[in-house]
């Protein structure tokens, strides 16, 4: 009997220990069952543990910046779902301020373009922008490669990841992609409900119905964005940021920005491309009665001659209750994605 108890205790201890380990063990990239097929070209950059580990180290390494102060992780903070908490616009090197709100790094394997204006079509090319932007990391790609080549650790990490210690542009960028691609958030309550492992409460259910009726056309499930560029009727900001127009130069793209995902909303405040709304309530108030009519305003926001999305205060509460089910605590606490 005593032995039985002892065995059970050992068994339980084993399970507990294992459970702790689970989030810290590299298991490669797997597509969540409830997600569509990723758009990233894994065939040209297969994810390996060594590549991921190298990418993670690079992501958190301030020596990628001109003066060793700003890493990628400086603006993309894991506990804020890889955004820069409390900053309306990103805060970069030499205390410079950017012009847009730091976007989250999550579920990027499904994103067909990057940045608020979609100016970058490929994740592998994305890091060049912040590394070389004089108000973000202020460096040159050439300098970064030189720094890495001269370091004691990196040549052997590149060797492990890519088979030789050569450090070049493509390898640097592919390693960073491998880390970012592994930042998959699919453990929210919403995900559990979709998997049949949990149920929404009454409020959440009512909010979900409101969401599907009013928001899902742009914030498409299950990634909560359709990755299109839309004009949602924000007044132009003081720098007159015209968003997508700067890329396409099409009149019809003026003041359009990429539909952001709603996942992990609780951690990613402030909201909008310039972080002008500090709270979710402010966002809902905006959609309720502050949307500005303009020639490019999205048709989804001008239904039946009405501008915006009318919501009563109880509807707002229900909607917020549903939106809170999109928060994924496992993701923001996943040690595998943290600075080691």
């Amino acid at each position: 009997m005593k032995l039985k108890i002892l065995i059970i205790i050992f068994f339980l201890a084993g399970i507990v220990a294992c459970k702790k380990e689970i989030t810290q063990v590299f298991a490669g990239f797997t597509k969540p069952d409830i997600f569509p097929t990723p758009v990233y070209h894994f065939e040209t950059n297969p994810i390996t543990e060594a590549g991921f580990v190298l990418g993670r180290k690079l992501f958190y390494d301030a020596s990628l910046s001109a003066n060793n102060t700003i890493s990628c992780g400086f603006c993309h903070i894991q506990t804020s779902a890889f955004t820069q908490h409390g900053h309306s616009v990103s805060h970069g090197i030499f205390d410079s301020l950017g012009v847009r709100n730091t976007p989250p790094i999550m579920n990027l394997a499904w994103s067909p373009s990057f940045m608020w204006d979609g100016g970058i079509p490929n994740l592998d090319l994305q890091p060049i922008a912040p590394i070389t932007n004089h108000i973000e990391m202020g460096n040159t790609m050439d300098n970064v490669l030189t720094t890495l080549r001269q370091s004691k650790e990196y040549p052997s990490l590149f060797q492990k990841a890519f088979g030789s210690s050569e450090i070049n542009t493509a390898r640097l960028l592919k390693a960073l992609s491998q880390f970012m691609l592994m930042c998959v958030s699919d453990q929210s309550k919403y995900d559990s409900v979709m998997r049949g492992q949990a149920v929404f409460n009454t409020n959440e259910n009512a909010g979900y119905a409101l969401f599907k009726a009013n928001c899902a056309v742009c914030h498409k499930e299950p990634l909560f964005t359709d990755y299109t560029f839309r004009n949602n009727g924000l007044t132009p900001n003081f720098i007159n940021d015209m968003g997508r127009y700067d890329i396409t130069l099409q009149e019809t793209d003026k003041y359009k920005f990429k539909v952001p995902t709603l996942r992990n909303l609780q951690y990613t405040a402030p909201y909008m491309h310039d972080g002008r709304f500090l709270t979710l309530d402010a966002v809902l108030d905006f959609y309720d009665h502050e949307v500005q009519n303009n020639p490019n305003l999205d048709t989804a926001l001008r239904k039946n001659g009405h501008i915006g999305i009318s919501l009563s205060s109880s509807e707002k509460q229900q909607l917020v209750a549903f939106l809170q089910t999109l928060n994924d605590k496992v993701f923001i606490e996943n040690k595998l994605l943290s600075e080691q």
């Binding site: 940045m115 970058i120 060049i128 070389t132 932007n133 050439d142 070049n168 542009t169 700067d246």
Partner: peptide, 15 residues
């Protein structure tokens, strides 16, 4: 190569 001769001849923000 954006790290080589093409530095300065490449728009990173509008690939």
């Amino acid at each position: 190569d954006p790290a080589g001769t093409a530095a300065g001849m490449y728009w990173s923000w509008n690939s």
